[in-house]
């Protein structure tokens, strides 16, 4: 089961309003390589990992991704907190406002709604882990693109933390994949 703790994993404190940047960061909320995709991928694949080690790692990383989803949602919400229709429109986000106003909706930056088609579950630990390794790098690359687009220091401090976590998760998935591949060879 899951236990909610009333805090974010790291502090999120964005001073400036910027609906345009919020729309860019939404990519990591409900986009193909975002935190929603990541958490649901690992929390689904864990059921068919071959041993306790695999079930533990996918559960633990999937759970951390849920806390990252909460962080990304908090950034998007803080960036649009208090923005009205006219401000959204001025930043080129009138199309978002007309449907969702100040809500945090699970879609990509381009407005494509979230879908489970973004990830797989194959009951094959090698196939699943190779997907997971790619997923972490795709998320890392998306965070790199956000850092290229954003000049907001408060936002970037949090994005850099999330980016670093993708690298750690990639390392751990790689260790599990190596462990399983060594077993296959024996």
């Amino acid at each position: 089961m899951f236990i909610f703790e009333k805090r974010t994993q790291i502090p999120v404190h964005i001073k400036n309003r910027n609906p345009k940047l919020a729309g860019i960061i939404l990519e990591q909320y409900g986009g193909a390589d975002g935190e929603m995709t990541a958490s649901l991928r690992y929390l689904s694949q864990r059921f068919t990992m071959k041993d306790e080690r695999g079930k533990a790692l996918l559960t633990d990383i999937g759970t951390e991704e849920l806390s990252h989803l909460e962080i990304v949602g908090s950034i998007v919400s803080q960036l649009t907190d208090g923005s009205g229709a006219k401000e959204f429109d001025r930043y080129g986000k009138g199309e978002y406002y007309v449907n969702h106003a100040n809500a945090v909706y699970a879609s990509s930056a381009a407005g494509v709604p979230f879908t489970a088609a973004y990830f797989q579950a194959k009951a094959d630990p090698i196939a699943d882990l190779v997907e997971d390794l790619a997923a972490e790098q795709k998320a890392r690359a998306t965070y790199d693109n956000i850092l290229r687009l954003s000049d907001d220091a408060d936002v970037n401090a949090v994005i850099k933390f999330l980016r670093a976590r993708e690298i750690v998760h990639f390392q751990r998935f790689g260790e599990l994949l190596n462990y399983y591949q060594e077993q296959v060879c024996q």
Partner: peptide, 16 residues
């Protein structure tokens, strides 16, 4: 936050 983050990171390390 700092101590719990360290704990979570150690947990992933210990899993493997």
């Amino acid at each position: 936050m700092t101590a719990d983050f360290y704990l979570q990171d150690l947990k992933l390390y210990l899993d493997t």
